[in-house]
């Protein structure tokens, strides 16, 4: 009696090859089936595509805002107003000490006299300034910190404020902190909404696959009767889900590109008016690839969900 007649089936190597072959065949046939019904396939792709595209577009926008404010951070500077009775020589020593600090890039002294002259020149109030008996301005130190985050800037401001030579520290960090918090909030909100939209799309896809299982009920019953494993019966549907997901990811990438293309001219014009050399940054190839991968994963998960729940129920009766 041959090995096959004993019910052992084919040898392991040939079995692996045919397993691979069935994968290829399932992949090809399920893609082919989708392309043969282009309208309904496109609608299914759009369900996932839109669910992916909206959060992706918002994330790209947030990334752009983040990138623009990174430039603002680097131009941050402190103005330290020294105590009114500080001598100019003492002020120079203080500035020299400040410049030694590792968190300070540059420290420049603006002596009170020069500050007054500049004030008179800038404001055109030299006549008024000339009537003053005393110079009301203190010596001022302009400190440029090394690049650091908003929280570190606030800490540094506190350090300066505690120095005995310093009477007042001026640094407007609040708007930066607010912006950073707002961006973080926006990002998290987008993740949350995006996750919900993806779950919705996943359930919609799972339902589509459930309908396909129903439509192929007779076939599933027959192949189970003649000895198909659950895995064999499941395989075409997993590929169906994968193709829906990948198609949805491609649609999503296209939608994001389209939206940004529409937004780019006014945004770039706005940036130019603010003398920025930056332009609106798009999704990029890696972003697009990520969308396709996320789409594929969602599609596969929805197929897994649908087959786990519904394929089991399709049993020969």
């Amino acid at each position: 009696m041959s090995a096959q007649a004993k019910g052992l089936g084919a040898g392991p190597r040939s079995r692996f090859n045919s397993w691979l072959h069935h994968h290829r065949q399932s992949a090809y046939e399920s893609l082919n089936k989708q392309l043969l019904t282009p309208i309904s396939t496109l609608l299914t792709w759009l369900v996932l595509g839109i669910s992916l595209a909206l959060p992706a577009t918002v994330l790209v926008a947030l990334d752009n805002i983040d990138r623009l404010t990174a430039g603002v951070d680097r131009s941050t500077q402190f103005s330290l107003f020294l105590q009114a009775d500080t001598e100019e020589a003492a002020a120079e020593d203080f500035v020299a000490d400040l410049a030694q600090r590792s968190d300070v890039a540059t420290a420049t002294l603006i002596p009170a006299d020069r500050a007054l002259q500049e004030f008179a020149a800038d404001t055109g109030l030299s006549a008024v300034v000339a009537t003053l008996d005393d110079n009301p301005l203190p010596h001022t130190v302009v400190v440029r910190p090394i690049a650091m985050g908003a929280a570190a800037l606030a800490d540094l401001a506190a350090v300066f404020d505690r120095m005995p030579e310093v009477s007042q520290v001026v640094l407007d960090t609040r708007w930066i902190k607010r912006l950073i918090s707002a961006l973080e909030f926006g990002r998290r909100l987008t993740y949350a909404i995006g996750a919900m939209m993806l779950v919705g799309a996943l359930l919609a896809l799972a339902n589509t696959i459930r309908l396909e299982i129903e439509a192929r009920r007779a076939e599933i019953v027959v192949i189970k009767l003649i000895g198909a494993s659950d895995g064999f019966a499941r395989r075409p549907f997993l590929y169906t889900g994968l193709w829906y997901g990948i198609g949805g990811g491609v649609i999503a990438s296209g939608l994001v590109f389209g939206l940004l293309w529409l937004l780019a001219p006014p945004v770039n014009e706005l940036l130019r008016l603010y003398d920025s050399d930056k332009v609106l940054m798009g999704l990029g190839a890696i972003g697009a690839l990520q969308l396709v991968l996320i789409g594929g994963a969602v599609g596969l998960m929805s197929a897994w969900q649908a087959t786990a729940v519904h394929l089991r129920r399709v049993e020969p009766r």
Partner: peptide, 25 residues
Amino acid sequence: QLLFDRSVFDNVALPLVIAGFGRRD
């Protein structure tokens, strides 16, 4: 219980595909 979405050959070949025979077999 034949499947009408495929040829006579594919119907007959189905148990072999399920059992994991190579294409030549």
